[in-house]
Amino acid sequence: MSSRVAAAIEAARADGRGAFVGYLPLGFPDLETSIEAAVTLAENGADVLELGPPYSDPVMDGVVIQEATQAALAAGFRMRDTFTAVREITRRVDVPVLVMTYWNPVVQYGVDRYADDLAAAGGAGLITPDITPEAAGEWIAASIRTGLDRVFLAAPTSTDERLDLIVRNSTGFVYTVSTMGITGERAQLDAAARTLVARLREHGVDHACVGIGISNAEQVSGVLDYADGAIVGTALVRALRDGGLDGLAETARALAAGTGRAA
């Protein structure tokens, strides 16, 4: 099966621009509003949606996202709500929806069951920040069976052998981590991201999207000089928290302007 995520990135490229990948936590500030927020993001320039079910031990997340996920858990978010949300969002917008999840909840739910339920809900695949391809055999098999995308992470510290493994096993895109450490905004994006994307190209990557630290249109534009997509999370979560759906829409449009799309 062809990748809907790759197709969205290719469609952006055909428009003469890079892709805007937008992240939001599910269940924040509540489930219904998080669904509306994802739809709002899709309607205001996001080419791919990246939705994060809240997790009790979010080792990769910065403080803004951690606070949002803790609020979602406190509001009673349950694993099954992930599939409810994805189903509703994909019913309303054509933008592909990736779920970014830590691996433990998938194992607890059952890898095959998770893949089946995500595919049935219209989801496009999983971003798995804390599992590497060599440990993901069960997920790779389930994703091939269901046609879901597998997005693995590459970091500046990854060896050439690891990058080769990541490129060979990822579909949709490779999530290229621009800086080591937790998510959040950075005044200057690490030059390591540019070097890492160049290394991924040497290993034959089709699509590399850069995330962690991108918070404005200028940074989006800078990343898209060398990458296929820019991933934004913290800036969108803050906009939703501080300005509601209207604030989120305004911020999304501003970020999308950095992709080369007319403002």
Rank of each mutant, 00 (worst) to 15 (best):
R241N: 09
A249C: 01
G243E: 07
A249W: 01
L240Y: 09
A227P: 10
D246W: 00
V232K: 00
T234K: 02
G247T: 04
R238A: 06
A249T: 01
L236C: 05
Y226N: 10
G222Y: 06
L245S: 06
D225F: 04
L245E: 08
L224C: 12
G247V: 05
L224P: 08
A239V: 02
R241K: 13
G243F: 09
V223A: 15
A249G: 02
V232R: 00
L236A: 07
G229C: 10
R241F: 00
D225R: 15
D228N: 13
G233Y: 08
D228E: 14
S221T: 12
D228C: 06
T251I: 04
E250H: 10
A227C: 14
V237I: 11
G243C: 08
R241L: 00
T234L: 05
G229E: 07
D228T: 08
G247R: 03
A249V: 01
D228P: 01
Y226G: 09
I231C: 06
G229R: 07
L245F: 10
A239D: 11
Y226Q: 09
V237Q: 09
Y226M: 12
Y226D: 12
A252M: 11
I231S: 06
A252L: 05
L245H: 08
A235E: 10
R241M: 00
R238D: 01
G244L: 10
G244V: 12
L245Q: 09
G229M: 11
R238H: 02
T234R: 02
L224N: 12
L240Q: 04
A235P: 04
L236R: 03
D242S: 14
